[in-house]
Design a protein around this nucleic acid. Structure first.
Length: 258
DNA sequence: GACCAGGTGTCCG
DNA sequence: CGGACACCTGGT
């Protein structure tokens, strides 16, 4: 099985998902769409079906790590350090809003805003008092600017409202984009207000499982600059650059000094 | 109180 | 097309 390549803490800290919470030490809660899963970090039992797919358990990540040349000491270390991270299969709509929110925010602030939005207009989750599903496009589009301002969204409020309206009104069909090519997908996503190259790549990677998508944020840019003199060999990782990106990101942000 | 945080849109050369 | 700049708000 893959349990030598599945690490809840690393996944929670990898910045792909912002509704992961350590409820009690060692006991984690995941919320995705309108579903809740609780896992014990010592012996995680992942149900078949939705959650197995969510954690991408059918993929063998060791294959990706083997593509890293031994001479690349940095990436070799990063991949070992990040072993256990998986590219989650999340909902495209949730990724769009979450990563619009994420711009120029730190992780605690992102989580706070996401939870505020869910509580404000998401459906209550059955059997889970106090927990709410991620809002639908229509639910978000129905909010006022003031409602959203109360979620500490600042200048992102118009981005979120406009994007929600566009999706709710069918100006863009997130489902049909599942079959679009990677480039086409990025272009279509960037037609939405508040989505530029970085967010579009995050949505592609985490929402559409385009594991070749390679979001470049300040951390990755820093790593590429400092470790590769600004010239990263993307061609070595064609087809799964996003997995490598996750190792770089996690190591750059969590592992190196700081 | 200043400074910055997992960017984007806009303007200007 | 590249670079500079403003933008809400809270917090490694």
């Amino acid at each position: 099985m893959v349990f030598d390549d599945f690490d809840i803490k690393k996944i929670a800290d990898s910045g792909q998902a912002f509704r992961i919470t350590e409820e009690i030490t060692g006991k984690w809660r995941f919320i995705a769409e309108n579903k809740v899963l609780r896992l014990d970090e010592a012996c995680p039992e992942i149900p078949e079906g939705f959650w197995s797919s969510y954690f991408d358990l059918e993929t063998d990540y060791s294959v990706f790590r083997k593509a890293i040349p031994g001479e690349d000491k940095f990436l070799t270390a990063a991949a070992e350090y990040g072993r256990g991270i998986r590219i989650l299969r999340q909902d495209p709509w949730e990724m769009i809003i979450t990563f619009i929110i994420s711009q120029r925010k730190n992780i605690p602030a992102i989580k706070k805003s996401v939870e505020a939005v869910c509580s404000l207009c998401g459906d209550p989750i059955e059997g889970e008092p106090g927990l709410f599903a991620f809002p639908t496009p229509r639910q978000l589009a129905s909010l006022s600017e003031e409602d959203l301002k109360a979620c500490s969204l600042g200048y992102r409020v118009p981005y979120i409202l406009k994007t929600s309206r566009m999706v709710a009104e069918g100006a863009i069909d997130l489902e049909s984009l599942r079959t679009a090519g990677d480039e086409e997908l990025l272009c279509r996503l960037m037609e939405l207000p508040g989505i530029g190259p970085k967010v579009a790549n995050c949505v592609s990677l985490f929402g559409y499982h385009r594991i070749d998508a390679f979001p470049i944020d300040v951390w990755i840019a820093r790593v590429i600059e400092e470790q590769y003199g600004g010239d990263f060999p993307f061609e070595l990782y064609k087809g799964f650059g996003g997995v490598i990106q996750q190792y770089m990101f996690y190591y750059g942000r969590t592992g190196l000094n700081q």
